[in-house]
């Protein structure tokens, strides 16, 4: 309760709160498409690969947004180029490209700024969110949500049956790269809150939790957004009260929700299905 009072009082906490919720929502939403398209590794890759862009932006004194988007998109294209033009498999080309970008990013950042900055970017520090960061997150969030709502139909059909989508004339490759672009935007928006290394937990885990709970994509997207936002708030809470880095706390919160769904989901839950089989066996035996 003290937390709510502080939330009313401190404007830095309000900014952190709004940013966290928005980041949780958009990570959950985009995460659904990443999970269903089997691109979880790609999410990890792009989030790591924005690092050199952030560093270059610092050096040039421009907003880190521009550099991060640039290297994020560059990564998506490099991975596509390697796996399409050689015998290297997709997961290997992801590994090759993102480790290179990440390594370059760490070197550039240690050259450009102090080690504290690096820790913040890697692990997130939601309490240091400035007004400009909050606005950037809100703008990116609005763009992402509007695009997903407008093109939900196309995202659904191309994620489910890409060949059918292409057969009736959808530009499936363009859809793929648009999702990569949105993913980059979401990653940039998440830098302050979860940090580069753990963005993937907010992308993959809430979406996977939602995946265990529903048979409809629209419901999955809404649930994932909710779980993402909830995890972010938990992260903020612990970060504020116990001075913990927000990224790891958020990651563990998403994991806790996942474990609950994994064990107790009405249809897929491990414990629930066990109980159901046992009672059925009992009924047959009697």
């Amino acid at each position: 309760m003290e937390f709510i009072q502080d939330l009313m009082t401190y404007s830095f906490l309000q900014k952190a709160f709004i940013t966290s919720i928005m980041v949780g929502i958009i990570c959950g939403v985009i995460g659904c498409f990443i999970v269903l398209r089997g691109m979880a590794l790609m999410g990890d890759a792009i989030s790591h690969a924005v690092l050199p862009g952030v560093a270059i932006s610092y050096m040039l004194g421009i907003n880190y947004f521009y550099g991060a988007v640039l290297t994020g998109v560059l990564t998506a294209f490099s991975i596509g180029a390697i796996s399409q033009n050689s015998r290297i498999k997709n997961d290997s080309s992801i590994g090759i490209v993102f480790s290179a970008f990440f390594a370059l990013g760490i070197i550039l950042i240690t050259q450009a700024r102090s080690a504290t900055d690096l820790t913040q970017i890697l692990f997130g520090n939601v309490l240091s969110v400035r007004a400009s960061d909050m606005w950037l997150t809100l703008i990116i969030g609005t763009v992402v949500i509007v695009v997903v709502i407008l093109f939900f139909k196309e995202l659904l059909v191309s994620s489910f049956d890409e060949t059918m989508a292409a057969a009736y004339g959808l530009k499936t490759r363009m859809i793929h790269y648009s999702i990569m672009f949105l993913l980059t935007l979401v990653t940039v928006a998440s830098l302050q809150t979860v940090g580069v290394i753990l963005v993937v937990s907010l992308l993959i885990t809430p979406a996977s939790t939602a995946y265990l709970l529903t048979n409809r994509l629209s419901v999955m997207v809404i649930l994932a957004a909710f779980f993402g936002a909830l995890s972010s708030i938990v992260g903020l809470y612990f970060s504020f009260l116990y001075n913990m880095p927000s990224g790891p706390v958020i990651a563990l919160a998403t994991t806790a929700l996942f474990i609950l769904a994994f064990l107790f989901s009405p249809k897929q839950g491990v414990v629930i299905t066990k109980i159901r089989t046992m009672s059925k066996r009992k009924a047959i035996a009697e």
């Binding site: 269903l36 994620s159 489910f160 049956d161 060949t163 059918m164 009736y168 995946y211 994509l217 999955m220």
Partner: peptide
């Protein structure tokens, strides 16, 4: 044009009814 893919090319766990 309507196209029906091979069954093995579909992810049958996809959240769709």
């Amino acid at each position: 044009i309507a196209y029906v893919p091979q069954r093995s090319n579909i992810d049958w766990n996809f959240p769709i009814v």
